[in-house]
Write a protein that binds this DNA or RNA. Structure first.
Length: 274
DNA sequence: AAACGCGCCTGCGGGC
DNA sequence: TGCCCGCAGGCGCGTT
């Protein structure tokens, strides 16, 4: 479900509410997520701390705590975060509940359990193993055409597959990879190494444009994405190709095609991206 | 060394 | 109506 714009939307929603609050207790109802939640580390480093900042790296939320530890939350495909009053019914697949100062509960729910919650001890976020292999943030200056050219000019993968590589562009997922390639006018099946410099430039710009526009719209809700207060996003009404198989291209009217690249559904306009 | 594809899970929608 | 199949927004890992 959540790619970079959806996670950023959640971050912006929860940050002003949870920052400055103490974590009074953490209830772990189901520790078996993608990786087992380290219950001892949660009790040692998280319980009792104050949340001092909420940031994002790739598709992860990162809570900075008052002891300089961090809590990393990944939502996988089906994860959600919600703010609740303690007396509200606990929904099925709720795996963690954070009791926050002020009688607020932040609940982590993930039916497919592809997400994870990880504790990073004080001072060690810069060596955190799950972040060490990530490429640059696509909305940073470091992510540009020269960077893509340097990273991909020898890569014999479909450019769509390369865009989905977290070591290339941290946080770009399947929806926005298709959308960015449409915006850049590049066929997703082309080998990354076949792109010219001006195409790498255009692709980097298209990625930035699609992601920032999606953030402005509060993310994409195809089925079940909701922000922390339960509201859907609105970018789905602006998707040019994703999930639009056989529908007319918004630019030229040609039917959008769906192919599978690297095992992932991929949508494109055979004319505009020809 | 890069690149592919498998598997982790549950839920849902479409076809029969 | 209900069952079964295929598919889903992610991503690490083993194998080639």
């Amino acid at each position: 479900m959540p790619e970079l714009p959806e996670v950023e939307t959640i971050r912006r929603g929860i940050e002003p509410i949870i920052r400055g609050r103490r974590i009074n207790a953490v209830h772990i109802l189901q520790p078996d997520l993608r990786w087992k939640v380290d219950t001892k580390a949660v009790q040692k480093w998280v319980t009792g701390q104050i949340i001092t900042a909420v940031s994002r790296r790739s598709k992860c939320l990162v809570w900075k705590l008052s002891n300089d530890a961090s809590l990393v939350i990944h939502l996988g495909m089906s994860g959600r975060i919600g703010l609740f009053s303690p007396d509200e019914e606990v929904e099925k697949h709720t795996h963690l509940i954070f009791d926050l100062q002020g009688n607020i509960q932040l609940r982590y729910r993930d039916p497919r359990r592809f997400g994870y919650v990880d504790v990073v001890p004080p001072g060690s976020l810069s060596n955190y193993k799950r972040f060490s292999l990530l490429g640059p943030e696509p909305l940073s200056d470091e992510f540009n055409g020269s960077y893509l050219q340097q990273k991909l000019s020898k890569s014999k993968r479909a450019v769509k597959t390369a865009l989905l590589d977290m070591g290339v562009a941290a946080g770009v997922g399947n929806i926005y990879a298709s959308e960015a390639l449409f915006l850049a006018g590049i066929d997703p099946r082309r080998l990354a190494s076949d792109l010219r410099q001006n195409e790498f430039d255009g692709l980097a710009e298209a990625v930035k444009q699609v992601l920032s526009h999606a953030i402005k719209k509060g993310g994409t809700t195809l089925n079940d994405f909701r922000n922390a207060t339960g509201e859907p996003g609105f970018f789905q009404t602006e998707l040019a190709v994703y999930d639009r198989k056989e529908q007319p291209c918004l630019k030229c009217g040609t039917a959008i095609e769906k192919v599978v690249i690297g095992g992932r559904s991929t949508y494109f306009c055979p004319v505009c991206q020809g």
